[in-house]
Design a protein around this nucleic acid. Structure first.
Lengths: 141, 141
DNA sequence: TCTCTAATTGCAAATCTTTGCAACTAAAAA
DNA sequence: TTTTTAGTTGCAAAGATTTGCAATTAGAGA
């Protein structure tokens, strides 16, 4: 419940309409302690009400991401996941050879983030980023 | 034709089998002057031969990416594209609000790339990277 | 060259996500 | 409160991508 009223209010101010579906979806992802796929959000929604539809879940999650109220991560394997902003920053190094995921210190990108804002006026979402590449084992192996 | 023999040889050495489909797909993307979706590669393949299949195209492109012979970019709109390594480095700043794409200097990430290798032994693919965020106009608007 | 085996292909089906459109409804205006 | 209208929903269908499996075949070894 913590962030929901604020989010709802902000969305209304930006011209969105607050429907019961949106309220519930926002509550689900705002309270999640981990990232969720659209399908998972849909299942949790179904537990609350039958007035739910997967398409609406997809559209709402996309909208929340566009408006900056949800993180969105493509793990590269045909499935996008969403997480609340409250999640601490993560930098995931995904090995394209063995699929291993290394958690890295995201402050590594602080300099780049700053420069992107300075030079291009662009506020990059670097707080939850996946980077693809090759891990040491796979390079040596 | 330029890089193909080298790629084929390397793949053979790594235990892959060189089929006519693979040869043609590699030739198509190695010679492309821009990124291609799997569907586009498939169409070009069809012009050459009827022995072609979209699933095989998907699998071959994925394999080339895993083995480091193709770049792979998710533009965030339900469609992944592939490009030859020969393409110069790009850093794309994609606005999640207006979808505008700003081309940025990728050397901005040189420091991060170096640190990732130093601290984590991870060779990140930062040469063709899309970063999502919000552009200046959308933040101000 | 022939044999053998594991890698690859092609198909069909499953999975994930987006889109068009008519019916519905939140919320601004009367 | 009622009306109005533009934003939303839900369905069905399309689009994008992956997966299981039987048939095929590249390439190693006899």
């Amino acid at each position: 419940m913590t962030h929901c009223p604020t989010i709802l209010q902000a969305l209304r101010q930006r011209g969105y309409r607050i429907t019961s579906q949106r309220e519930m979806i926002i509550e689900i992802i705002a309270h999640s302690d981990r990232h969720l796929s659209a399908e998972e959000v849909f299942h949790r929604l179904r537990e609350k009400t039958s007035a739910s539809n997967l398409t609406t879940v997809y559209r709402t999650l996309e909208m929340l991401w566009v408006e900056g109220f949800a993180r969105r991560n493509d793990l590269g394997e045909g499935r996008v996941v969403y997480a609340p902003l409250a999640h601490g920053p993560h930098l995931h190094l995904v090995c394209r050879s063995c699929n291993r995921v290394i958690e890295a210190d995201h402050s590594l990108l602080a300099g780049a983030e700053h420069q992107l804002r300075e030079h291009y006026g662009f506020q990059a979402d670097l707080a939850h980023l996946n980077l693809f590449g090759v891990c040491q084992d796979c390079r040596e192996g």
